[in-house]
Design a binder for these strands. Structure first.
Lengths: 209, 209, 209, 209
DNA sequence: GATGAATGAGCTTTCATTCAT
DNA sequence: CATGAATGAAAGCTCATTCAT
């Protein structure tokens, strides 16, 4: 951030800008997010926007941080050993559903469309590390089989859960109770497996060419 | 396609352009895919590109069609009842890994970043329908529990598998044998579950605000 | 107009752009009028041009409006019954000469070369109606023969006067006193005729083929 | 022309190309006339077109020559002293109407839109001279007043007639008998005037600004 | 602090023209 | 002679960013 807001008025301005950015991102995607659009949606001039955000990437960086915090909170709950296992898994699934219900498109755009600029790397890397650690904690707390040294189990869980939730958000079935049940089933089934599947003899299936 | 290639040399050109588009899409994403970049990567002039592809969208449309064909082929194998169940599941997982090993990031960008133009709707809608049907067939052929009238099980399977594979491609762990094992585990575990999980009493977990 | 100028400096910019457009149109015709040329001639950047004019057509639309206003003013004078007939006819001829002396070729290009965009239709249609009405008023006020229900007399007067003036502008003889005399003669002679000419028996003259 | 057609087949090709150019010019204007469009309309490849016409301008040059011939023929008739005066004037008006009835838009585009390239100057200049001489002959043969040393009378006649005819073509009233009558009236009235009009004392009419 | 006018690199796309086949 | 694939300069237009007011 180029300049720290010192007055309450300025703080309100930066909040308005960040909220407007999240809104525009959700409505129009990264393609349709232009600095002028955001400034207009926030009700400030483009000049004011640039007084607090040095460039376009810094804008979504602020949005990203908010989303990151939300996700980490959910993951923390999902590895909280003071709760029974089912409650933890439910917290994971329900938390993800809740987060993606708010600005479904914005969240999706944030993770999939928006480029990650050089100068915003640190923040992102920090979160990525936290995210990974949290997912590993979730895996460790809930899986019924041996450790996951490579982190592959955690990453699979993260990818599968995110993928299923995003797909559901796309189809508009995210708030269906059946979907919630199936998500719970999938997460629980994967984590509950004591042994991994035996790989059948190499099948000669392959993609074209 | 604006003009059909009639000479061998023109066919080579269109192929080179489509491959270059897939490559650039994978390397730089939709943002970084410019028509000039693609032309340069294909080793042809921008004019040649526009002789066969009416616009930027048509470019990725061609890439999309290729990926779609690949995926449908895999899904067809995965619901082929002449093979034993393990072989089918292995075909699904291995096929997906193979497809995403080629231009890992390209496939992800294709589905998540690229806008879908008016005129490319038909192709995409056709595929979306086929895709859904195929996944439903896969679910029906391999799940050990009752039917999936709403299609939610199939969509969850599709989303979870794609999400996990994409995440692995991002982390570069897609060709790890452990990853393949875990994918098999996840898919098999989800499909093998006879009953769905009981939802614990409403937990009061929620995202901020 | 895409954006209304709010500061004095912006108003000067839009004026400069419109004048430059008229100038370039006169010098190079519609073919040679490029947005960059106009911006350069106006001494502003291409971006500034597009801040006030949404596209190339809007540019000449602004020029057109100015010319239209000028012409309507002249026509109004030419049907002002408080002046004697000679004065009215002189007003018509002198007014047309004055208008076409400013950007001689621009006016011609405006009416003959420039395409008329969808969104500029309304303005043009409005003017076309006014123009027709005004010419009919001029004809009614100055012709020495019966009414012109079909409007053909008025349209002939309009076409002939414009044609002669444009041709003179092209040859550079528009400011010659003889030209003014001849224009007065032509207009007066046509309007003064009490009866129309008898058509001789069908001559068998024809163009080739 | 780059290469002279030596075989009958090649002559047919050049004719087809020129006719196609005239047709496209009439249908789509100079803007819409592209070399590929013309080649396609003529049913030949773009390569063949360029074998006979060195560039785009040479294409319309050929069309222009045809139109020029038509016009000169009409003007020649209009100054043919073996016919009575009314017949000559009728020949002028009827001939002009006939020419402009054929490809009205093409003719208009030819004279007003198409740029005159450096290398096509000679042909055009030759015609312009002939055209002027012919109009002067028409004026001399039909005007009832003293000579027109400056050529201004002839040029006014040319401009006024062309302007009125073009305006009529635009309005679609070119084939109306009333229009023919009015054209005859206008031409005859102008040429019949023995003395020019007296200019009233300078009126203070002026265009805006 | 706030404004919005001004900037210009860079994008997508067209089309006159060349040349290998 | 005929073909059409290939070329690339140049056009219209966008939008992140700066800076005078």
């Amino acid at each position: 951030m180029r300049k720290l807001p010192r007055q309450a008025r300025a703080l309100a301005t930066t909040d308005a800008i960040r909220d407007a950015a999240a809104h525009v991102l959700g409505e129009r995607g990264w393609q349709g997010l232009t600095t002028n659009t955001v400034a207009e949606a926030a009700g400030v001039s483009i000049g004011s926007l640039y007084q607090y955000f040095p460039n376009k990437l810094a804008l979504i960086e602020a949005v990203r941080r908010r989303h990151f915090d939300d996700i980490l909170l959910v993951l923390r709950n999902a590895s909280d050993k003071t709760m029974p296992r089912e409650r933890r898994i439910a917290a994971l699934v329900e938390g993800m559903i809740a987060i993606h219900s708010r600005y479904p498109a914005a969240h999706h755009a944030l993770l999939n469309e928006c480029p990650r600029g050089e100068d915003s790397r640190r923040t992102h890397d920090f979160f990525a590390k936290e995210w990974r650690k949290s997912y590993e904690a979730v895996f460790a707390a809930n899986a019924r089989r041996a450790g996951d040294q490579s982190g592959i189990g955690a990453s699979l869980l993260a990818g599968a859960l995110a993928g299923a939730v995003h797909e559901a958000a796309r189809r508009g079935t995210l708030d269906s109770p059946v979907m919630k049940q199936e998500l719970l089933t999938m997460v629980d089934a994967y984590l509950a497996r004591r042994q991994t599947v035996e790989l059948p003899e190499p099948a000669t299936t392959q993609a074209r060419r």
